[in-house]
């Protein structure tokens, strides 16, 4: 796809939970897991969203403000404008992979899980949310037949607590070569520290306020790096 917004039609709109939908579009995109697109609704705004699946192209959108509100109001057959894919994405190869997702971070990790499996990797997933109603993509991960560990802050499903509490012992077990993560900044920060302690390589997908999406405006800076161009996936070295 070119870097001008292209109008794509919704072929499906899946209600994932009380505040999250998946938009399924009439298009296949050549993209890597971890990459994102800028979604535009004329007169509303343009915002970055991770690719939840490339063929058909899918985005999972949680309702948090004006743009996501407007995206939730779309119906089958409506257009939404897409520019991208942008960013680096996660590495895909064989090995023993642990995937850790918070909130809608589960969506791009599901795309990753499928690619990792195709590449012959052993994959386990840990998903966290506030309550069982907020957990996303449990069924989809389950459908891949891989072990899924859940954590909810209110204990309504899986282990009580945060996804980081579930991930810490898994990382310490020595069973994994690599941690892939996507979720809120606080979760990523905690996971980065766990990676360093346990010497497991990490690939963490971060967010930042984006304008251009193509690495020129500087809006999305994070420690001298541009999330849209150098990221959104950043590596934490393992080994040691």
């Amino acid at each position: 796809m070119r870097e001008v917004p292209v109008a794509l039609r919704l072929i499906d709109r899946i209600q994932e939970n009380h505040k999250t939908i998946t938009l399924v579009l009439d298009h296949a995109l050549d993209a890597r897991p971890g990459q994102f697109c800028m979604l535009w609704l004329p007169g509303v705004d343009e915002k970055p969203f991770s690719i939840a699946g490339p063929d058909p192209l899918m985005f999972t959108v949680s309702r948090v403000g004006p743009f996501s509100e407007a995206a939730h109001a779309l119906s089958k057959g409506d257009p939404i404008w897409v520019r991208g894919p942008f960013g680096t994405g996660w590495s895909v190869g064989p090995g023993r992979a642990l995937l850790a997702g918070g909130g809608y971070g589960a969506a791009p990790l599901y795309f990753l899980a499928r690619r990792l499996r195709e590449a012959g990797a052993e994959v386990e997933a840990a998903l966290g949310a506030r309550t069982s109603a907020d957990l996303l993509f449990m069924d989809r991960f389950g459908g891949l037949g891989l072990p899924v560990h859940a954590a909810t802050e209110d204990g309504s499903m899986g282990a009580p607590g945060r996804v980081t509490d579930v991930v810490a012992p898994l990382l310490g077990s020595g069973r994994f070569d690599r941690l892939y993560a996507c979720g809120p900044e606080a979760m990523l920060k905690a996971l980065e520290a766990r990676c360093r302690e346990t010497h497991v390589a990490g690939e963490l997908s971060h967010e930042a306020y984006m304008r251009c999406g193509v690495g020129i405006c500087g809006s999305c800076e994070r420690d001298a790096r541009l999330v849209c161009m150098d990221g959104p996936v950043f590596s934490v070295p393992g080994g040691g």
């Binding site: 070119r2 870097e3 001008v4 917004p5 800028m38 535009w40 705004d45 343009e46 915002k47 520019r83 984006m210 304008r211 251009c212 999406g213 193509v214 020129i216 405006c217």
Partner: peptide, 17 residues
């Protein structure tokens, strides 16, 4: 300004940051 603020349209950029 609100997004879109910068677009790579094929022969360079156009922006209204």
């Amino acid at each position: 300004h609100r997004n879109p603020t910068a677009i790579d349209w094929g022969h360079g950029l156009i922006n209204a940051m």
